[in-house]
Computed example of a mutant assay.
Amino acid sequence: MFCKSMRRGSYALLGVMLYGCSSAENEMAGGNIEAVNHTSNAINWLSVNGYRADGGGGSSCCIIMPTKWRPGLMAHIEWEVDPNRFAKIKRRAKGFGFDEEAWAAHKAKFQRHSATVEIPEWSGTDSCGLKVHFLVCNQIKVTTSCWGYGSSHNPIKEPLEMKEPAICPK
C-alpha cells in the first residue's frame, strides 16, 4: 500500500516538474552560433556553454537557448587562437604531407582563452542565434541581433582586422 501511494506521488511530482518545464518561461529552442573575428589572428574553434562551433566565420549549428530572454542569462565561451594564421608549414623533404615537427612547433603556440559574459536582451522571438565577436586583447562581445555585422542596426561597431595594442588593458 505504501509503495503504491509513493509511486502515485512520484508520478504526480514528475507531472508537476514536466508541466513546469513546458511553461513559456522555460521554453528552449535551437539556434546557430556565429563567430565574427575582428582580429588578425585565426580563431580555430569556439564553444558556448559546451556547444562547439567552427571559428572560421559563418554559422555553425547549434546552441540551445531560452525562447524568451531573462536577466542573468550568461554565455561561457572558450576559444582557441592561432596567433600566426599565415605561418608556412614546410612539406616533408620526401613523400607527402607536412613536416610533423614544424606543425608541432606551430601548434604549440596556439592559445586557449575563456570568458563568461551576459547575453544581451532580445525582445520576444527576435533572437537570431548567438554571434560571438572576437576582439583584440582576447576580449569578446556577444549579440543575438538579427542584423548582420556592418549594419547600422547591429550593436557591435568595432572594425574588422583590428591591430593588437602593444599593451592590453587588464
Rank of each mutant, 00 (worst) to 15 (best):
K107I: 12
F86D: 15
A12M: 12
A102P: 00
S40L: 13
P169Y: 02
G50A: 04
P155R: 04
V81Q: 06
I77M: 11
E80N: 09
S151D: 10
S127D: 08
G20L: 15
G150M: 04
Q139H: 10
S23I: 07
A35C: 12
C128L: 05
H76Y: 10
I64H: 12
A115K: 08
E80T: 14
G124A: 03
H106W: 14
V142F: 00
G95E: 07
I43H: 01
S47Y: 09
I167H: 12
A42R: 04
E161V: 05
V48Q: 01
E158N: 05
D99F: 03
I119R: 06
N26K: 14
K163S: 14
K88E: 06
S22D: 09
K163V: 11
V81I: 15
A108V: 05
N41S: 07
S145Q: 07
P71R: 10
N84A: 11
N37L: 02
S114P: 01
D126V: 00
G95H: 13
E100F: 10
S22G: 11
D82P: 02
F98L: 15
S23E: 03
T143L: 02
T67V: 10
V117C: 00
S152A: 03
E158S: 10
K157N: 06
N44Y: 07
K157F: 08
C128E: 08
K163A: 13
N37P: 02
S127W: 11
L18G: 12
N41H: 07
A12P: 03
E27L: 13
G95C: 13
C61R: 04
E80C: 06
I43M: 05
I167Y: 06
G129A: 06
M1Q: 10
V16T: 12
G58N: 04
W69F: 01
G124T: 03
K94V: 05
I77V: 15
E101K: 14
K131M: 07
T143H: 01
M1I: 13
G9W: 13
G50M: 06
A93D: 11
W45K: 08
K107C: 07
N26G: 08
M6Y: 14
I140T: 03
Y149T: 00
Q111G: 03
L14S: 10
C61I: 05
I33S: 05
W122Q: 03
S145W: 04
I167V: 15
W122Y: 15
K94N: 04
G30N: 08
G58P: 01
C21V: 03
R112E: 13
K68T: 12
S47H: 11
S40W: 08
G148N: 14
V36R: 02
A104K: 11
E164L: 06
G56S: 01
S47D: 13
V16W: 10
G72A: 09
L73Q: 05
V36L: 01
E118R: 13
